[in-house]
Design a protein around this nucleic acid. Structure first.
Ligand code: ZN
Ligand code: ZN
Ligand code: ZN
Ligand code: ZN
Lengths: 137, 137
DNA sequence: ATAAACCTTAGAGTTAACACTAAGGTCAAG
DNA sequence: CTTGACCTTAGTGTTAACTCTAAGGTTTAT
């Protein structure tokens, strides 16, 4: 299977596949006489792993670690894998908390603004951003 | 007030202040005889506006829009400002939803893994990432 | 008068995950 | 036998919001 075919199968771009190879996430495949990459089932499995790991929020760097562990399972423990997962979940939770603060502040701002088409000289949102005490702590 | 002093007052870097000026978020100040920037209260107010807008999640590009509206309030309406705010809140909400899906998937993965220090050959997390049906849809 | 601390500009580097471009070689069909 | 679809590499561009570097001029204190 050449790169275009594999890319279509897994619904990724050929650029992405070459990028993953360069980043060590996808094994370098054999080449045919003219230098074209020849992929097999192993590579498709790797790409599906990458896809699923991306779908749960892991970064490519984290996925590289998971792939390495998966490749040499005997040398690694469940603890390691679970730690990676929990650490990632913690990061995600922190980011969610930050965004929820944003959401709450934006809601508060929007709620106070009349939203009319009249000139904005009295706009409570602008006032809140100008004044020190515009937003409830 | 020179740039270092102002930066200290608002707890930002001098680089950031020059960057904001370049991006049109901070008014270009007068220069003294040797070319040093001379800031006044107006600039500090602008920076506080920027700071508060950042604190509720606006990007610099969005802040530039808000500052422009704030500068020419008569030409703009409450509706415009409220729309910006609600649109931003919508984006934030979408991102939160995505991250919450990540969080749920990661929780599910972590829950199933024993987390022991035994070899990872049986690890349910790795299995889930390998198998098509590893994660509940 | 000299060292430390400040200021200036222009431009490059950072992070993530690719997308895009150029310049060229290869392969299948008609 | 040539067109079009595919493949190769190397290198640049993208986005956001700065940070860092280099190479130099200024101010302040001793
Ligand atoms: Zn209003
Ligand atoms: Zn308003
Ligand atoms: Zn286990
Ligand atoms: Zn496990």
């Amino acid at each position: 299977m050449r790169i275009g075919e594999l890319a279509k199968q897994v619904d990724m771009s050929t650029d992405a596949l070459r990028y993953y190879e360069q980043q060590g996430l996808l094994s370098a495949p054999l080449r045919n006489a003219s230098g074209y990459r020849q992929y097999g089932r192993k590579h498709m499995a790797q790409l599906r792993f990458i896809r699923r790991a991306k779908d749960v929020g892991f970064s490519l760097e984290e996925i590289a670690e998971l792939l390495k562990i998966n490749f040499e399972k005997e040398q690694h423990s469940c603890q390691e894998v679970k730690d990676l997962t929990l650490k990632k979940r913690e990061l995600v939770a922190e980011r969610i908390a930050e965004l929820q603060r944003f959401h709450a502040s934006l809601s508060q701002l929007a709620e106070q603004c009349c939203g009319s088409s009249a000139p904005a000289q009295h706009c409570s949102i602008l006032t809140a951003l100008e004044d020190i005490d515009g937003l409830t702590q």
